[in-house]
Design a protein around this nucleic acid. Sequence first.
DNA 1: CTAAGACCTGACGTTGACGTCAGAGGCAAG
DNA 2: CTTGCCTCTGACGTCAACGTCAGGTCTTAG
Lengths: 125, 125
Amino acid sequence: MPVTEAAVAPLIRIGEVARGAGVSVRAVRYYEQQGLLAAERSPSGQRLYAHEAVERVRFFQQMYAAGLTSRNIAELLPCIESGHTDAEQRAMLRAERERIQAKVDDLQAALDRLDHVIEVTDTHP
Amino acid sequence: MPVTEAAVAPLIRIGEVARGAGVSVRAVRYYEQQGLLAAERSPSGQRLYAHEAVERVRFFQQMYAAGLTSRNIAELLPCIESGHTDAEQRAMLRAERERIQAKVDDLQAALDRLDHVIEVTDTHP
DNA sequence: CTAAGACCTGACGTTGACGTCAGAGGCAAG
DNA sequence: CTTGCCTCTGACGTCAACGTCAGGTCTTAG
């Protein structure tokens, strides 16, 4: 086994990140602008990402879908990466959790109402 | 029992509707503009609403929270009021239902991820 | 070498549900 | 009558997460 070079994880360009995560190239640039996703640069200035960037962007999408803002996501990223938190961060995490839970409850209530409408209108065509 | 006049349900003004439903006066006007909520007018031009308007506005809020647009709500209002639907409307109702259900699932997934983060960071302070 | 894509940096446009401000009436109390 | 609060009609502002366009550079298949 040669001791020469560890297999350098091949970096990917922005288009591949975007396609992999199912978002636009513009969106990926936007995430960088919001401080969510840093990129190396090639000598010519093109952004280069590790493969994990794809999963990371998917995570962003999931959080956006949950109603978090870029700022919220930026705040909770250090918690995830460092694995430890101070009191303020824990409070923030719990607050976001409560917000989402409340939203789930709201949606469930809306769903119930819609189901009621559907039931009524289906049995009275 | 006098046969004179049925107790006229007292109409309320826009401010009371807004306070009752927990939204702004501007929002109530906006709903009218979107064709969601009609109002009588006093001789001087002020909007007058029945009490049920409050509940109706709450319903709007619930639907907005579920991610429906004003247009969506406007489309499903006739279904609710008439109590019957054509095929297209039923399809629309089901589609919205699916959208909301998908959103609930997304939120639940986000919640699970957040819970995981919270758990890890709580046990590693 | 060359043409087609992919990528770059600005920078303005979009969408939805309102917020906000201006200017002008209404309306009950004192 | 006037003070104070509510309401009216426009009409422009906001905010977030991008879309889109312009004009130029890079990379890669052939």
